[in-house]
């Protein structure tokens, strides 16, 4: 259970961090976000990463929890990249017919 919580927190954290980056915003939302929103996303993402570590550390003990948190962060970041990839592919697909109609 702790593992699931820690991992989900890490995953949400990385998704927010990714969304906070201007270079990925067009891939995710199709447009850039307001800088203030981006900043808040970054803070939120950072807080969730710290939360993931705290969940693991408090649930599993500081030593094993910290090691586990690093593992969760690695896995979560990998999944976040996969999610980004699917999202941007879906977005491209959704737009492709629209563009061809325009042409």
């Amino acid at each position: 259970m702790i593992h699931l919580l820690g991992f989900v927190a890490a995953l949400c954290g990385f998704v927010l961090l990714c969304a906070a980056m201007q270079r990925h915003q067009t891939e995710i939302f199709g447009a850039r976000l307001a800088p203030a929103l981006g900043r808040n996303l970054r803070y939120g993402g950072g807080a969730l990463i710290v939360a993931a570590w705290l969940i693991d550390a408090l649930g599993l003990g500081w030593a094993v929890g910290t090691i586990t948190a690093l593992g969760h962060l690695t896995l979560a970041a990998g999944l976040a990249i996969a999610l980004l990839h699917w999202r941007s592919a879906a977005l491209k697909k959704a737009r492709a017919p629209a563009r061809s109609k325009q042409a």
């Binding site: 593992h3 094993v64 090691i67 586990t68 593992g71 969760h72 690695t74 896995l75």
Partner: peptide, 9 residues
């Protein structure tokens, strides 16, 4: 759980 994280890493 941690063993799988080791394995994946």
């Amino acid at each position: 759980d941690l063993r799988w994280l080791y394995f994946l890493s």
